[in-house]
Amino acid sequence: MKDRPVINIFFAGVGGQGIILASDIVAELAFRAGFDVKKNEIHGLSQRGGSVTSQVRYGGKVQTPVIMEGDAHFLVGLEMLEALRWAHMVRPDGRIILNRHRILPAPAVLGEAEYPADAAETLAEYAATLVVPAFETASEMGDVRMANSVLLGALSAFLPDFSADDWTAVLSENLKPGTLRANLEAFDRGRKFASDAADKGKAV
């Protein structure tokens, strides 16, 4: 375990999307699996609908909690513009897991700036990008707040260190009992979507 290389996961999204809980779940999973883990996020003003990031690093020994630029094995984008903003964090041989979802920032609402039209194409220039219809899936299931469970499901397909049961255990302890069953289903849908895509070579 001590010599295991460190895996870096960078989450980017908008304040209020639930990014902290999503990254807490991944960090706890790694902690329970016996890894050294560090997790970092910035609180404060960023909670008011601004850009929010959170980072999880786990492996044999982790020094800094902050991922170096171009060194994230995974960039999980909860929102497309925010994924673009942090695209330079991902390794060229890493993977971007992207929620197909736009939240217009104030300058775009005011007509002072354009929301980028080709987010997925631009991201693909940085690393292999898997576009996940997490927002749509969650909407279909009746609650857009489950989009993060879909995304975590997709991420889980690329993390062989943790079994589906490990995920279920941590999700069960961190989500409200009333919403758990639906969230677990959302997680499964995301996991299946990513596995199917990987089989078809879509995300390469």
Partner: peptide, 13 residues
Amino acid sequence: QKGPVEGLPPRPP
């Protein structure tokens, strides 16, 4: 890795 994507709209709180 390449540098940050340029010209993105900011997201002020």
